[in-house]
Nucleic acid binder design. Structure first.
Lengths: 218, 218
DNA sequence: CGGGATGTTGAGGCAAGTCAATCTAAGTGG
DNA sequence: CCACTTAGATTGACTTGCCTCAACATCCCG
């Protein structure tokens, strides 16, 4: 497997691949963070996911054309396979193929959750659920105290808005509201600290902690 | 494969499986239509998909517990496999497993599209895109004239609202608006006729016709 | 041929959007 | 190292698209 893998580096702001363009690689993020988005014909944008180290993106799909644009939020390093060789690998190693099916179905379940958030939740619930998600994904790489848990937010307020179906202003106001209520503090623009987990959880309207899983970005 | 398959019948309104309950079957719809939804703790509901004959739902996933509720919109007939036996089948026939991976990734791409609809489109665009989707899915089972294409809508206005993140009233008003503008007619509550495809397409804000694919409901 | 469920239409309210004016922080070059 | 620039974030005032509440119409289905 090492033989057909390559390493790719992307600097902050550069595109890993672009909507409607052919892309013949499968990438696994090893360092940094990526945002995946769709653009409408006017300037509207929907960020369908944020990818972190361990997550997979690119050509694990029927078509060779990307359906989204992937942009580096930070400097990013990826392990890459040519799409064709990767798909041959799946055929050659059924266990790997089987594992990937569950990566894909996990992603479908996570997207169902996000669809529910966008279709039926208000701004407060959306941002609270988002912060809990980010906290949970970060926690896996080292447990923190529940009392005061630091959550890195590599994306901008605008990115958060475009992920949650809100405007920058509404995201900013909701952050301010959470601060006022003592749920979080924001020591810097790219960090939140959860000061009151139970209240933030309640504000999210979730019935269980978000499931963490390997993200599959297509 | 026939040996381990069974047939299941569900009458209109009955549940195929229920959110957070164990469900050990994989079902393939053979007749009728199904809605898949998530319920929040209050009465809010998000319909994450409508399934038609040929679509697959149930236990093709890591966990044996359903993450959604599936309810029969009409009388439904399904072909069923026990989850465990179905997963063994995937392991035994790598080609089948490989095919299912692409069914899953097609579903992810379709959900990305729906996420974009919910996050960034207005009521008019949502309903227009929904009607085009339903038209495209129906067209495959028999081509119609573009001039005046009948679209069966087995679900209620409330179901459409809960799928598109709108209220019943907004759905109804948007239908009325489309009728006034001559884009569609509604000969009955469960049928729309597309009278002006280009205008409806424009109203949807889509840049290409919706892709049709086998739905995977989890 | 009722009567409950579903759909339509109208009036008014509100959560989030828009527009606009600061404020802050991160670079950048002298 | 500091003035200057600029992108991003915050806050306020106002607007609006969709929601809520309410009344009425229509469609089924027994």
């Amino acid at each position: 497997m090492r033989q057909i893998a390559s390493t790719h580096n992307f600097s902050r702001g550069s595109l890993l691949f672009e909507q409607d363009q052919p892309f013949d690689q499968v990438l696994i993020v090893t360092h940094g963070h990526v945002k995946l988005y769709k653009l409408l014909m006017d300037a509207r944008r929907q960020i369908v996911g944020f990818l972190a180290p361990g997550d997979i993106l690119g050509g694990v799909k029927r078509s060779a054309a990307a359906s989204c644009t992937a942009e580096a939020l930070t400097d990013v390093e990826c392990c890459g396979f040519r799409r064709k060789e990767f798909l041959e690998l799946l055929r050659k190693y059924p266990d790997l193929n089987y594992a990937f099916l569950f990566v894909a179905t996990d992603e479908i379940e996570a997207q169902n959750e996000h669809i529910t958030l966008l279709g039926r939740k208000n701004a407060e619930e959306r941002l609270a659920a988002f912060l809990l998600m980010m906290a949970a994904r970060d926690k896996k790489s080292g447990p923190q105290s529940t009392a005061s848990m630091r959550v890195p937010l590599p994306m901008s307020r605008g990115d958060i808005g475009d992920h949650l179906g809100l405007t920058i202003e509404t995201v900013s106001r909701t952050f301010a509201d959470f601060r006022r209520r003592g749920l979080i503090t924001t020591p810097s623009q790219h960090d939140a600290v959860v000061e009151n987990y139970p209240s933030l959880f309640q504000a999210s309207g979730l019935d269980k902690d978000p499931m963490i899983h390997i993200r599959l970005g297509l």
